[in-house]
Nucleic acid binder design. Structure first.
Lengths: 345, 345
DNA sequence: TTGTATGCGTTATCAA
DNA sequence: TTGATAACGCATACAA
């Protein structure tokens, strides 16, 4: 857009100094005497001058801004992570842009390229928005742009990876149900194809569930494992499917809260009591989980910690002004999800 | 970040032509013979060349990208609008960045400046994230950058404004409750200070409620009007306050769904039945409203339409390549919210 | 048809 | 201390 510009040149003319002097006071580089500094600052104010960030970026080859790619803005799990991440970044005086790929991986890949082409200083990938192929390609092409992946294990050395040990958490959750005496524990899993299928936690959660059943010498029945999409409606559909079974489950473990909420709706529709008829366990601990009734027992993902850790990695790298691979920072970090007992179990 | 660059120059050298030829094939301007075009394209591929968008922006003075500012990413109402907006923009081959001001108006203002300084091609403000003062200042300073405001009436001529007639909707909703025989209808309003207080719908909703009561010759009691923050917890707190009244309300109209959900939790805590003991009406129709139990009766904000309309205004302006004030487009557009009867009333 | 030269708004180097 | 001036990577008017 054709911007009416008041450039550094105008400021220089107005204050009767050269542009390099103006630049010096703007960036606090070099020493400028108080009086000229005042003159320049007044000129800046009078003209309402603001440095053109695009020109700055072109010259400095850094933008002071980061990109965040998320696959589904409608899932509170993501927005809760993003909120923490952005806030922490802002405290470090860095801006961030959010890209929502809206569950379409082609968009995620395009966004990823777009970010890189705009020379953002770093990028955070949450869950499985961007394909491994693209990340691999660009991490090689732009080795100096740090990439932080949350809940996605790219198996690319240069990528900072934050994972949650979901297998353990799911094992504990399922064992908890077992110990309470539930015998037919069903699971609503994440999708095996499409968005969400490559998130780190997806398989892990199912594996933890399976291991717990085996450990407890309970049968693992394929009938009791039904696949969802991580979205609410899919939880509802999955629950209906489970209710059609000749012998319905007495407990259901959903791979995320949204699906658990969907399952809750399905149960209420057929007037089954929670937890008396069917117990319900979710995963994520989104804000909503404690608001519904009965309040949802779930596994708390360390969303705030994940977001903040990602921000801190980025901020540290920026402060050290080093290329990612030279950092002393460990590249792989594990977090834990913890059980939050509420009324639905 | 020090990007290893393969520039247009490298491509030119590799393919044995000049940079202007490369630029010509890249931008499809001018006529380049097939064979040289092929050579250039092969070189681009071999080198993995990608145009530097920052340099492009600096030169072309447009970035092909838009900024979206939102005050609370955790409120699904916003993300539902944003999703529709982004998708439509993408279909028009435009990118957009989301800024979440996280309910802090200072951040919103800073983000707004940041966007403008980065010469994004336009900006969408949702609800009341950015202050009027800042918008006024910059709309004057950058008259060529279109600004679209959703549910916020800035009273600045150049701003495209999309509003929903909430007074009418709230009137209808309240009248609906009256007609069903409810006599003590309470209202949980939006905040009179802080984030949300300047959103267009806030006062409107309360006014529609008041007018409906007056029309029905029902008393308007200040005790029955309690203020929330548009967040879930505030709805819970407000409901508790209402329940402490000597005579409790038989219906509650919350100014948004999130607060209605909070109120629902409060009611369940004290084992009051919905709608038998207390009926509940929300506003927004977020996805969740239909999932809770009882399903929430609410007023459907035209979120998709609002987002898409904003995108279309921007796309149209970009296509016409005209400055905003010369557009034939009407600058103020009203939408309607419609009643969605469900089980909670 | 292709190449050269200039400028977009900054920052940074180096003389003065 | 301050001021020219050369990049940054690209697009484009104009020349060849």
């Amino acid at each position: 857009m054709l911007t009416v510009k008041t450039t550094i040149k105008d400021v220089a003319k107005q204050s009767g100094v050269s542009i390099s002097t103006v630049s010096a006071v703007l960036n606090a580089t070099g020493w400028v005497p108080e009086d000229t500094k005042d003159r320049v600052e007044r000129a800046i104010n009078d003209l309402g001058y603001r440095p053109n960030r695009i020109a700055q970026s072109l010259k400095k080859r850094r933008s002071n801004a980061y990109g965040i790619i998320v696959s589904d803005l409608l899932n509170p799990y993501f927005t809760e992570i993003v909120s923490a991440l952005q806030l922490r970044l802002l405290e470090g005086d860095k801006y961030s842009f959010i890209f929502n790929s809206d569950r379409r991986s082609d968009l995620a890949d395009k966004s990823f390229e777009f970010i890189l082409d705009r020379q953002l200083d770093g990028i955070v990938l949450i869950s499985d928005s961007v394909s491994e192929k693209i990340v691999r390609k660009y991490s090689k092409k732009y080795p100096e742009v740090p990439i932080v992946a949350i809940e996605r294990d790219y198996d690319i050395d240069s990528v900072y990876t934050l994972l949650v040990d979901s297998e353990k958490a799911a094992f504990e959750a399922t064992t908890y149900l077992v110990n309470l005496g539930y015998k037919r524990i069903a699971m609503i899993t994440g999708p095996s194809v499409g968005v969400g299928s490559s998130s780190y936690g997806r398989l892990q959660r199912t594996e933890g569930y399976t291991r717990a059943l085996k450990t407890a010498k309970l049968p693992v029945s394929m009938d009791l494992i039904v696949e969802g999409t991580f979205r609410m409606e899919s939880g509802e559909a999955a629950m209906h499917k489970l209710l059609c079974l000749p012998k319905r489950p007495d407990a259901v473990f959903a791979a995320n809260d949204l699906m658990a909420l969907g399952a809750m709706k399905a149960l209420k529709q057929v007037h089954l009591r929670i937890p008396d008829d069917v117990a319900l366990m979710g995963y994520d601990d989104i804000a909503l989980a404690s608001m519904v009734s009965p309040a949802l027992t779930t596994l708390a993902m360390p969303k705030k910690e994940l977001g903040e850790k990602a921000a801190e990695i980025l901020l540290k790298l920026a402060a050290e002004d080093i290329v990612p691979h030279d950092s002393s920072e460990k590249r792989l970090k594990f977090f834990n999800a913890s059980l939050v007992p509420r009324d639905s179990v």
